[in-house]
Design a protein around this nucleic acid. Structure first.
Lengths: 127, 127
DNA sequence: TAACACTAAGTGTAAAGTGCACATAGGTTA
DNA sequence: TAACCTATGTGCACTTTACACTTAGTGTTA
């Protein structure tokens, strides 16, 4: 994956977590893209989820059959595309959870090893 | 990021973890690419780290000034490019650790929320 | 000696995901 | 009318990776 750039400070770095997060939010409450963006930015306060990324992932989730969408008129403002999760989507979410548990374990193993390094140990070189 | 493909079973999926892992291994003991590949495959038993990915990341780490390398003759076999970490590399490793701690927290938050979903709850849709 | 295996380092290419900027459009308010 | 908010999306550049392949030194075996 590439993360575009974003080695800086802006934007959430949700490496590989966008789709599971979207699926879970939609599972909890069927909704539309714009509201999902708000939800993201509410949870990860101060950081901004890229609308383009959200919308693109929603379209993809539908292509893959994990969500279904339909247009819904809004009393005030443009129509919204409202998403609901499918049975396949629930399964996909579960599989993503298993992967994330593994990933979490990998990170933990790494951090444990890092914390067990001898202080001022290691073999660094002048410059 | 793209992950090439690898939604299947081969290869380790070390999303964004290759560079920190390489830096830590080199910090522990300056060494060359081929041995790093062996180390990877020893830790993640059964899974195979892509040599191409390892070598490319090592060249990148050097371009960025996080490691230094020098050719070293081998009694048997081709010469090896031996890597050592720099002070900048140690700093970069530390920053990567901070990021990974955040990422771990994100995953934990997600998993916690997932596990608190009402059983058979959620709003799924026919198909 | 030719073939093969192992060590060692690397490249070419396609695919995938993301950030940033921008486009489009309906509706509300100054 | 202009500005602004809601709402959805696209185009492009960039990054990273998997897979397949290349190059090359050395040792072993048929």
């Amino acid at each position: 994956m590439a993360t575009g750039k974003n080695e800086n400070g802006t934007g959430i770095s949700l490496d590989r977590m966008i789709q599971p997060m979207l699926l879970m939010l939609i599972l909890k409450k069927p909704t539309h893209g714009y509201e999902l963006i708000q939800s993201f930015n509410a949870v990860h306060e101060g950081e901004i989820a890229e609308p383009g990324t959200i919308y693109r992932n929603l379209r993809r989730l539908e292509r893959e059959g994990f969500v279904l969408s339909g247009w819904e008129a809004s009393e005030s403002g443009p129509a919204r595309r409202k998403y609901a999760i499918t049975e396949d989507g629930i399964k996909a979410l579960h599989e993503a959870v298993l992967k994330l548990e593994k990933q979490k374990q990998q990170i933990e193993d790494f951090l444990t090893e890092y914390n067990h390094l001898p202080k001022k140990g290691g073999h660094s070189i002048e410059k």
